[in-house]
Design a protein around this nucleic acid. Sequence first.
DNA 1: AAGTCACGCAACCGCCTGAAT
DNA 2: CATTCAGGCGGTTGCGTGACT
Length: 349
Amino acid sequence: MMGRSPSSEDNGLKKGPWTPEEDRILVDYIRENGHGSWRALPSLAGLNRCGKSCRLRWTNYLRPDIKRGKFSDEEEQSIINLHAVLGNKWSAIASHLPGRTDNEIKNFWNTHLRKKLLQMGIDPVTHKPRTDHLDFLASLPQLLAAANFSNLMNNHPLDINALRLQSDAATLAKLHLLHNMLQALGNSASTIEAMNLISGPTFRGNQLFDELPRINSLLEVNTGNLPFGSFVPHEVTKLQSNFINLEASQQQHQPLLSEYQQQPMKDSPFAANVPTSSTPPPHQLPALISTSPERRPSVENKINPNEISNPSSTSTNFEAWGDLMDDVASDHYWRDIIDQASSQPWTIS
DNA sequence: AAGTCACGCAACCGCCTGAAT
DNA sequence: CATTCAGGCGGTTGCGTGACT
């Protein structure tokens, strides 16, 4: 596929798409001599291009270690996770995906992943739920489905790195869910509904609240910012108070919302874990993990764990999140919450 | 069959950073 | 310390292509 304007001349230098012949010259030269100074390369190699153009062509297309073709599911999840932490630092993201270039990842994000997150009701910039047009109630099925992400592992054993990526994704999804709860609770009108949703006989709400400051500090310390928004102390206090009040009133307060039930996601791998209903949902969650065979992880797509845990970049973030997951936000803990949410009748006043 | 539209992606542009002088 | 310059990065552009009418 061609890009940009057809070959135009500027300062006598060719621009636009590279011809196979130019590619050959560039590859041959670098194979023989290395690239050395990019500025000097074109004249030395006999190319009528600027050095910058040569560098770009080499790094984005001709380099022998470049992996072409579709992104694997694990790569896709990795990009989403890394973007939540790093933002549009494409080169930093690319450093965790061997064989992928920043340009390729950037394009993939802009053309696929951005839309996918938007469809899920997640703001692709902040990775927060989009409360502008999707309120908490509407986006909950997606969040619940996403929160069950890690259950996939039971059905599709992957290599260890893929597991790690999936776990990161699950953490993100759960934090989204948690933050959404907080947002809902901050709004007095929806407090009861949300608490009814997440509460139940075995819901350990106070444990959740106890950990909010820790979640806050982990995110802040390890990322320098709060990708999901902060849990400020007064929010925690308010939540604890709300929760205590709710517990007291919960037994008698069980109105139903029969109109709002969760929807089967027939085409989603989450389907088995998501409560079903006959009512169509306001929004559909696209599958984060493709079920198509050609997207199954392959040997060559396995990501080097050493790359992922590059200590100079974001490993501390993942480690911290991992700690969080291992501890309070462990899967069984969240599964309890989610199971409760799934089985609990919905309430609206 | 022809025209239109939306999308994907290679390539360019301009800014930033860090090393060299 | 100030300046210059090469390399790197993120954002943007615009052509080719396939889907749709």
